[in-house]
Every structure is written in C-alpha cells, then in structure tokens.
C-alpha cells in the first residue's frame, strides 16, 4: 500500500480536482472537447516519459524543446516536399535520437554535467532554428493530418499510442534488464559499475531514448494541425520535468515510476483548462503551476520512503 503512496496521492488530488469540476463546471467532461484535449497532450506525455527515464538515471535534459522544434520543422519540410509520412516518422525518430546522442556523448562520454550540456544544446538549437526558419510556418499536404484517418479516429489513435507507450515503458522499466540498469545507475553509479553495469553506456542510452521520443512526439504533434509552427516545443522541458517530479520521480535519481509520471502529467495538464472552465483569470496560471511543483517536492520530502540522498 505505502509502496504506491505517491501514485495514490497524485491520483487522489486528481480525483478531487475532477469531482470539483464535475460539480462546478460539468461541461468539462463533454466528450468531444475532452477527447481533443487528451489527444493534444499525448506529445507532452511522450516527452515526459523520456524525461522521467533520464531523471531516474540521475541526469536531466533541458534541450527537449529544441529537439522537438528542430525535428518538427525538419519533418514538416520533408512532408511538404511529398516525402510520405511512413518514411518521415522513422526519420524524425532517428533525427531526435541523433541529437540525443550528441547530448549523451557529451554527458556520458566526456563526463560533463547534463544540466549545463543540455542548457547549451537548448540555446544552440533554438537559435539555429530561428536562423533557419525565421518564424515561417510550414504547410503540410493533405492526408498528413490525423494520419489521414479523420479527426475522431486520429485522436483515438494518438491516445492509444500514448497509452501503449506508457504501458510498454512502465513494464520495460521494471522487467527488462536495461530498465533495471537505469534504476541501478541512478541510485548509485559506483555500485552499479561494481555490479557489472556500464554506467556510461546506460546514461548514453537514456539520452538517445529521450531524443528519439522527442522526435516521435514532434510527429505526434504535427499530425494534429495542417501547419507546423517552428516555435513548437518552447517551454516543453519545464512541463516534462514538472510532470516527472509531480509523478514522484526523484531528481536525485534512482526512484520513480512511469505510471506516476502519467498521473503527474494528467494532473498538470488538467490545471490549465480547469482554470479556464472555472473562470479564473489567466494572470494566476504561472503562479499556480509553480506552487503545485513546489507542493509536489515538499510532499515528496514527507513521504514515507523519501530517502532521497
């Protein structure tokens, strides 16, 4: 029971919020808007899952927004030049993985601190993108939106992809050797090394995975609208980190469950529309989000097993 205390408490807060909405703003649950709201958060979920893996491995990746933006523009350009989506999707994932690989090499290969490395790649990527695209939108050809499936089917597909990915990654993180290695490296790299795990390889792998997921997320995002905005992905890193932290991932590494991250993101992304539905003025949004993050870490501290070292 207490093992899942964090997940349960996030779920409880979420339930409380949803029931308040059910009373004060029942229209929050009307199916069509709810569906499109959930579908539009799937890309953020994919990135948050990657972020959680990186953080469990005791690192952090601030550059995800830039990876996301660069892959979005690259994929958009390819699609606009009549390259078919089934070909663009693996290319986007590959491109993302490549950027992640650069981060991973700098962090794991050279032993540089991830926060500074990814800060540098965030800024470099963003400015390069602005030089390259100058804010120009890219129009996508017909048949790309919703994978050519129509809106409702497309949205369900996105949600299914998101759920499948959480299930898969949550299972893998617990049951595959590679998943356990990440926890091992995150809780104590030296001990992991003595146990025969190569911490460098594991860290490199988490960054490549993060990049690949950011590239994947960029495609999941661009199918939801007929144009690509080169500014897409700005601020995504904060959302992903916040979702992971609220979901119980320890910034000190080695602890956290991906289902918790899923709940954390649900909670985080409910706040903003909830404020709209409850007719709270937008001026308070950032302050409330900051408070929620702080409350989540403070709660983490008082949690039974809060043995963050």
């Amino acid at each position: 029971m207490s093992r899942y205390f964090r997940e349960l408490s996030v779920a409880a807060v979420l339930a409380l919020m949803l029931s308040a909405l059910a009373v004060f703003a029942p229209s929050f649950f009307s199916p069509a808007p709810l569906l499109s709201r959930l579908a539009s958060e799937v890309p953020a979920l994919v990135v948050a899952l990657g972020m959680a893996v990186v953080m469990i491995g005791r690192q952090i990746d601030i550059s995800v927004g830039s990876i996301f933006g660069l892959t979005a523009v690259l994929s958009g350009t390819l699609l606009a030049n009549q390259v078919p989506l089934p070909l663009v999707l693996p290319l986007a994932i590959l491109t993302g993985a490549l950027f992640g690989g650069i981060n991973g090499w700098l962090v794991a290969g050279l032993g540089l601190p991830s926060i500074v490395v990814t800060l540098a790649t965030l800024v470099t990527g963003r400015e390069l993108l602005s030089l390259w695209q100058q804010g120009r939108f890219i129009s996508l050809p017909e048949g790309v939106q919703w994978f050519g499936l129509g809106q409702t089917t497309g949205q369900w597909t996105l949600i299914a992809v998101g759920l499948l990915l959480v299930t898969l990654m949550a299972w893998a993180s617990r049951n595959l050797a590679a998943g356990r290695f990440i926890y091992a490296v995150g809780s104590d790299p030296e001990a992991a090394r003595l146990a025969g795990v190569r911490p460098g390889a594991v860290t490199f792998g988490t960054f490549v995975l993060m990049g690949a997921l950011a590239g994947f997320a960029a495609v999941l995002n661009l199918v939801q609208s007929p144009q690509v905005d080169p500014k897409a992905g700005g601020g995504l890193e904060l959302k992903a980190i916040a979702a992971a932290v609220i979901g119980g991932v320890a910034v000190t590494g080695g602890r956290g469950r991906l289902w918790g991250v899923f709940l954390g993101l649900l909670l985080l992304t409910t706040i903003n529309p909830a404020l709209t539905y409850l007719r709270v003025e937008a001026y308070w949004e950032k302050a409330i989000q900051g408070t929620v993050i702080l409350l989540a870490v403070v709660a983490d501290r008082f949690q039974g097993n809060g043995g963050a070292k």
């Binding site: 980190i241 950032k286 302050a287 409330i288 900051g290 993050i293 702080l294 870490v297």
Partner: peptide, 15 residues
C-alpha cells in the same frame, strides 16, 4: 534539491 526548488520558484516568482 536546489534544481527543483528553484524551478518551482522560477514559475512562482514570474507568476
């Protein structure tokens, strides 16, 4: 951890 505390106050102060 300072990283996460100041990330929270980063949003809070601006907010």
């Amino acid at each position: 951890p300072p990283l996460i505390v100041t990330l929270g106050t980063f949003s809070l102060f601006r907010g």
